[in-house]
């Protein structure tokens, strides 16, 4: 396992699309360092040949019938949009 000191908050925050102030970065570095130091103990467990467990119930490959069902109306779907115009969500220009 990589050392806990290697967490690069600035890089991870960029991956997470989360703007952090310098104060937040400093605080998180210290706190997450403590937490990563704590979870380092998992290195002690022998896991060779053990399958990972994704969730708590033994169901796999659940399929749904390919049929059209009623969904939200446009009005309902847009009710929580922060900005909207002409039945659409307003977004910033992403193509120059």
């Amino acid at each position: 396992m990589n050392s806990s000191a290697e967490i690069n908050i600035e890089y991870v925050a960029r991956l997470a699309r989360l703007a952090l102030t310098a104060t937040e970065q400093a605080k998180l570095s210290q706190q997450l360092g403590d937490i990563l130091h704590y979870v380092d103990k998992l290195k002690q467990v022998e896991v060779a040949g053990i399958e990972p467990m994704a969730h708590g119930s033994p169901v796999f490959n659940v399929w749904a019938a390919d049929v059209v069902v009623a969904g939200l109306s446009v009005e309902e779907a847009l009710r929580n949009a922060p900005e909207q115009r002409a039945d659409s969500i307003v977004v910033p220009k992403v193509v120059e």
Binding site: M1, L42, V45, P52, M53, A54
Partner: peptide, 12 residues
């Protein structure tokens, strides 16, 4: 090192 290992210990 972290996520996959945690999922394996979860199995245990």
């Amino acid at each position: 090192a972290y996520y996959l290992r945690a999922q394996k210990v979860r199995t245990l």
